[in-house]
C-alpha cells in the first residue's frame, strides 16, 4: 500500500509528543495519520486507499491544514500535496540518503514561521506621482530623443521612450521600497525573499522567515510601512509553515 507524505518533522526535543498528537487525526480521504520514525526525525504519513489519491481542491486544502496544525507544535519540512512513496522502507531509505540536507533545512526553519507580504498600488497613480514629485525626472521624461527632423517614426520613438523612462522610474521606486523593507526587517533577523512582479497592481510579493514569537513585532513594522508609503496597500498573512524556504533536492 502506498503512503501519502505530509511533512518531515523534527522530534529531537519531544520524541513521544508527535504520536500522541496524531492519535485520532485523519488525513486525506479520512485515512488515519501515523509517523515513520528515523533517527531525529519522523515522517507523517497516511495510507492511500485502493482507489488512489483524490487530487481535489478540498483534499489539497485539508492537506495544507494538517501541515499547519503540525507546524504549530513542531519544526517541520512541509511536503508538496501528492508526495507519495511506496512503503515505510522506501521512506527510511530516502531519509537515510538525504539526512544531512534534511537536518540542515530543519535547522534553518527551527522555531520559525513563514509570513507573506503582498504590496499593491495603482501603478498609474504612482507613475503620475513620481513624475510630479521629481522635476528633474519630469524633465527627463519629456526630453525628446535627438531630433533630426519631424517624422512619424521619430514621434513613435519619443512616445516609446517616454513610456520606457516612466517604467524605469517605477522600477527604481519599487527597488527603493524593497531596500527599505529589507533594511527594517533585518532588525528582526528575518530571512526574506522578494519578487518584483512587474504587474500593474500587485507590484511586490515577499515572504519572510521569522522567529515564532515575532508575529506582533512584524505587524507593527508593516503598520509603519503603511505610514511611510501611504500610496501603497499592504496585505500581511501568516503564520504559515516554511513552504518557501526549503532548499532540498531529494536523492
Amino acid at each position: 500500500m502506498k503512503l501519502l507524505i505530509y511533512a518531515i518533522v523534527s522530534v529531537k526535543d519531544a520524541p513521544g509528543t508527535l504520536n500522541s498528537l496524531l492519535t485520532g487525526m485523519k488525513g486525506t480521504s479520512g485515512m488515519p495519520l501515523y509517523s515513520v520514525p528515523f533517527n531525529e526525525v519522523s515522517v507523517v504519513v497516511s495510507n492511500i486507499n485502493s482507489e488512489g489519491l483524490n487530487a481535489s481542491q478540498t483534499d489539497a486544502i485539508g492537506y495544507a491544514g494538517l501541515i499547519e496544525t503540525l507546524a504549530q507544535k513542531f519544526t517541520l519540512l512541509p511536503m508538496r500535496f501528492g508526495s507519495v512513496m511506496g512503503s515505510t522502507q522506501e521512506i527510511a531509505d530516502m531519509l537515510g540518503k538525504n539526512m544531512n540536507e534534511i537536518l540542515r533545512n530543519l535547522e534553518k526553519v527551527e522555531d520559525k514561521f513563514e509570513f507573506g507580504l503582498k504590496i499593491f498600488c495603482d501603478s498609474e497613480k504612482v507613475r503620475a506621482g513620481l513624475k510630479a514629485k521629481s522635476a528633474a525626472s519630469a524633465k527627463l521624461i519629456d526630453k525628446p530623443a535627438p531630433e533630426i527632423k519631424h517624422s512619424v517614426y521619430l514621434d513613435y520613438v519619443n512616445q516609446k521612450l517616454k513610456e520606457h523612462r516612466l517604467e524605469e522610474l517605477l522600477m527604481a521606486y519599487v527597488d527603493s521600497v524593497i531596500a527599505e523593507i529589507k533594511g527594517t526587517l533585518a532588525r528582526l533577523n528575518s530571512i526574506d525573499k522578494f519578487r518584483k512582479t512587474g504587474a500593474e497592481k500587485n507590484i511586490i510579493d515577499a515572504v519572510f522567515l521569522l522567529d515564532k514569537n515575532k508575529k506582533a513585532e512584524l505587524i507593527k513594522v508593516v503598520e509603519g510601512f503603511k505610514k511611510q508609503y501611504p500610496e501603497l496597500d499592504f496585505i500581511l498573512t501568516g503564520p504559515w509553515p516554511p513552504y518557501s524556504f526549503i532548499d532540498i533536492t531529494i536523492k
Binding site: K118, N202, K215, I219, D233, F234, I235, T237, G238
Partner: peptide, 24 residues
Amino acid sequence: MSENKLLFNTGSLDELSQEIGEIT
C-alpha cells in the same frame, strides 16, 4: 484563507481574490 491568517490589510481584498482566481 481563514480570517486569522490575515494579519494586516490596508486595502481592498478584491485584488487578492482576483489574483487567487487567476492562479486557480
